[in-house]
Design a protein around this nucleic acid. Structure first.
Lengths: 146, 146
DNA sequence: CTTGACCGTTGACTATAGTCCACGGTATAG
DNA sequence: CTATACCGTGGACTATAGTCAACGGTCAAG
């Protein structure tokens, strides 16, 4: 049953898509989509010998990072933006730094949103989830009003 | 040019969709979608007199809350879930509380993800965004590896 | 040599969250 | 009365993020 020469403990550099899928929990199709969109830069063209692509450890790390970034609502294009800023040698250093700074700001704002929602929910819970239309409106307005 | 009797300072209870759109910055079409999906519970059936729907202040607050929840990656169905748990009288108190507790947990986990990403980016920035394939892989693995 | 589990490519299909458009009705200014 | 800026409804269209199925190729075991 050992049809596939899975990378064992050490020394093996390349994986095939099934192993990457297993390691990350992301479907083959999704991985191929990420690749097509340019989010994985370290995938070889299909090896002419057997027509299989080869994936490195960085692909696994990138996919895990994509999963995290998606959880916070980033789109794949935006994930690509972050990846590119981390890695792209064509951008000058200052551009990359500015991009990262901007992303950090975005993340900070998202954290602020989350804290707002969390304390709203927590307050509601502390209040025994007593719903009262007027007070709810007041609290909704307090948190989310204009 | 005052073709519409916009709700002025006090005493007016109902708005029409254009005013809600203005107050929230959300398009009429999107508001109608939220309504169709059941996220706004306080919209009247079209007034038979003029066929216009009437929106209350709670709709504005809800839409603002939807915007915040969307920013953190919640889908409209999930937003509806939160809304329902906040308001639905048909659920017993304990179910609503449990739902809110679960949501708070989710929010906490998202905050954790965000902090992870933020510190990853911050560390990268502190490191002068020096990209080095091996070190980047190491750091990606450290943050996102399995 | 066949089987079974994998691989790549393509293209169709799905769900979500809208936008856009055309229709016809409403209200008000001129 | 007409122009205009709204309103509701319905249906078509878009982008995103995939999933699924079909086709044919690869490879190790039996």
């Amino acid at each position: 049953m050992d049809y596939s020469q899975r990378s064992s403990e050490k020394s093996i550099i390349f994986m095939r898509i099934g192993e990457v899928s297993e390691k990350t929990g992301v479907s083959r199709d999704a991985i191929r989509l990420y690749e097509k969109l340019g989010l994985l830069n370290e995938v070889t063209r299909p090896n002419p010998y057997n027509n299989y692509k080869e994936y490195g450890k960085e692909s696994v790390a990138r996919i895990n990072m994509i999963k995290e970034m998606q959880r916070i609502g980033l789109k794949l294009r935006e994930c690509k933006g972050v990846m590119d800023a981390l890695v792209n040698d064509e951008l000058d250093a200052e551009s990359r730094k500015q991009f990262i700074r901007d992303k950090i700001d975005e993340v900070r704002q998202r954290i602020a949103s989350l804290n707002q929602i969390q304390s709203f929910l927590q307050e509601h819970l502390d209040n025994d989830c007593a719903y009262n239309s007027d007070s709810m409106i007041a609290r909704l307005k307090g948190e989310f009003g204009d």
